[in-house]
Computed example of a mutant assay.
Amino acid sequence: MRQLTLIQLKRGKKARIAGFNGGQGFISKLNSLGIIKGKEIIKISDSFIGGPVTVQVNNNKIAIGSGMASRIIVEVDEP
């Protein structure tokens, strides 16, 4: 498995959330949105000039700021 940030994940690809680069407040905010370590995530759209990244988790579409997305670590099966 290869690890990368959510920003680096290509649009339309699936990954598993591996962890977060942030404190407990950051992690709690993401967990409240359903973005939890171990969950499968699909990147729906990319960030444009610092705009939000849209992802799908548990059949819910969520927009995440690019700063937050750059601190979410995901694992992909492909090399």
Rank of each mutant, 00 (worst) to 15 (best):
M1K: 09
R2A: 08
R2H: 09
Q3T: 15
Q3K: 12
L4Y: 05
T5A: 00
T5M: 06
I7R: 08
I7C: 07
Q8I: 12
L9P: 01
K10T: 14
R11L: 12
G12R: 00
G12L: 02
G12D: 05
G12F: 02
K13V: 09
K14G: 13
K14C: 08
K14N: 10
K14A: 12
A15Y: 04
A15W: 01
A15L: 03
R16Q: 08
R16N: 09
R16C: 06
I17S: 00
A18V: 09
A18F: 06
A18W: 09
F20Y: 09
F20A: 13
N21A: 15
N21C: 14
N21L: 15
G23R: 00
G23F: 03
Q24S: 14
G25L: 14
G25A: 11
G25Q: 11
G25C: 07
F26S: 04
F26A: 00
S28T: 14
S28M: 09
S28L: 15
K29Y: 11
L30T: 09
N31C: 06
N31H: 07
S32D: 11
L33K: 10
G34M: 00
G34A: 06
I35N: 06
I36W: 04
I36H: 04
I36Y: 01
I36F: 04
K37M: 11
G38T: 08
E40K: 08
E40M: 05
I41C: 03
I41E: 05
I41S: 01
I42K: 13
K43D: 00
K43I: 03
I44R: 01
I44H: 03
I44L: 08
D46T: 04
D46H: 10
D46P: 11
D46M: 07
D46V: 06
S47E: 02
S47H: 08
F48H: 12
I49D: 10
G51T: 02
G51H: 03
G51M: 02
P52M: 12
V53T: 10
V53N: 00
T54P: 13
V55A: 04
V55C: 07
V55H: 04
Q56N: 14
V57I: 08
V57G: 06
N60H: 10
K61V: 15
K61I: 13
I62D: 02
I62V: 10
A63H: 13
A63T: 15
A63M: 14
I64N: 07
I64V: 07
G65M: 10
G65K: 04
S66V: 05
G67D: 12
G67T: 15
M68S: 13
A69V: 01
A69M: 03
A69L: 00
S70K: 04
S70R: 05
R71S: 09
I72E: 05
I73E: 01
I73T: 03
I73L: 01
I73R: 04
E75T: 00
E75Q: 08
E75P: 06
V76Q: 05
V76H: 02
V76S: 05
V76K: 08
V76A: 05
D77M: 12
E78S: 11
E78G: 08
E78V: 15
P79K: 14
P79M: 14
